[in-house]
Design a binder for these strands. Sequence first.
DNA 1: ATTGAAATGTGAGTAATCCTCACATTTGCG
DNA 2: CGCAAATGTGAGGATTACTCACATTTCAAT
Lengths: 213, 213
Amino acid sequence: MEGSAVSDSQDGQIASPRRAPSQQRSRERVERMLAAASALIAEQGSDAMRMGEVAERAGVSIGSLYQFFPDKRAIIWALAERYTAESQACIATALAEVNDAEGLCKAFSELVDTYYGMFLAEPVMRDIWSGTQADKALRDLELADSRANAEFLTAALKRLRPDADPAALDATAFLIWQMGEAAMRLAISVGREEGDRLVAAYKRMALRELVDG
Amino acid sequence: MEGSAVSDSQDGQIASPRRAPSQQRSRERVERMLAAASALIAEQGSDAMRMGEVAERAGVSIGSLYQFFPDKRAIIWALAERYTAESQACIATALAEVNDAEGLCKAFSELVDTYYGMFLAEPVMRDIWSGTQADKALRDLELADSRANAEFLTAALKRLRPDADPAALDATAFLIWQMGEAAMRLAISVGREEGDRLVAAYKRMALRELVDG
DNA sequence: ATTGAAATGTGAGTAATCCTCACATTTGCG
DNA sequence: CGCAAATGTGAGGATTACTCACATTTCAAT
């Protein structure tokens, strides 16, 4: 099997693996690198994460690190990608079977709680979404992710209100989703108590918009 | 007159001028430095802005730059502070004389348009708010700014609904304001057309919440 | 006008850090 | 076994934020 993409990121674009690990040994080493990076981000934040330290903690040389990750952003990107994939699956299942207003309320409410819990519990996710927004590739990933997530919401809305303008539903769902992420970023950057209140207020606002149109 | 603060930023804190310019000559030079930085940020973004280039374009030595700005963040922070002061004044006047629901609608609607226009027109503001969120000091500045802005909204709301729970109004205003900034950041990162639609959707949503409670 | 201290100005040099590259080792496969 | 591809290594190149020892200018007090 040939390795997939080899595109070195240059402008502000993607950062795919420089070389896909094809042997068992290297796959395990890449896992160790990701684990080390994850731990370091959790401890100090992605900005303070040093590539040399990642290599050392993973028990590999700096050269090996760069064999599989073209640059520092790529390793953060790889971690972010895992989290988004995971959360997207969770969202899809939560919204898949929504068919009436009551079901939407329940599913959306639980979804927000789950998402908020993930933000609170995962230091890496927290750092990546609130800290490393400087990186254009990551912003784009988040945007794409947000669109994908919003589409599950759109789909549910369309089932609820088949006669409404689809484009308007699209915009509403996208906006509501993005605002939810903004509300949660805000919530985790203030105290826990105020954060909880903000998330609750967001939930109430979003639900009104979703249900009443 | 002794210079004001000298607190070198260390942890993730403030970054005040290392030494306040007290002579006319140095005040002009500092202005040139800020202008150079602003131009460079507009051209390439704050991340790509090089301190050496700022100094060169301002016609000063690198040493002079560091005489007045303790580090790179400080010069960006100084620019951000100017924009926030300017926009805060604009918000205060817009919301000061709101006394009924209709007035709130009109004032808020115009305010959003103005703010959105500023985001679109000012590359520096755009870069600082959407790009340099990695910087904790800047995030804190934005948060404080947002709280201050939300308070004008809170004040207007309290005049409209004197019987409502003040704490709830506070939370609502803060959330609505933050979401507005999120919506605008989103709007400028997608195409102009979709962006306009998103801002319009936000406006509708926010107004409903503001008017209906 | 003199003077001296504070303010201001300079830029070569330091330190930190991302990333490369020439070369060594290991693995898979005919 | 033999060889090509995959993998591994770490000293060093390149960039860049920032420092510091020293030069120059301003200005208030004498």
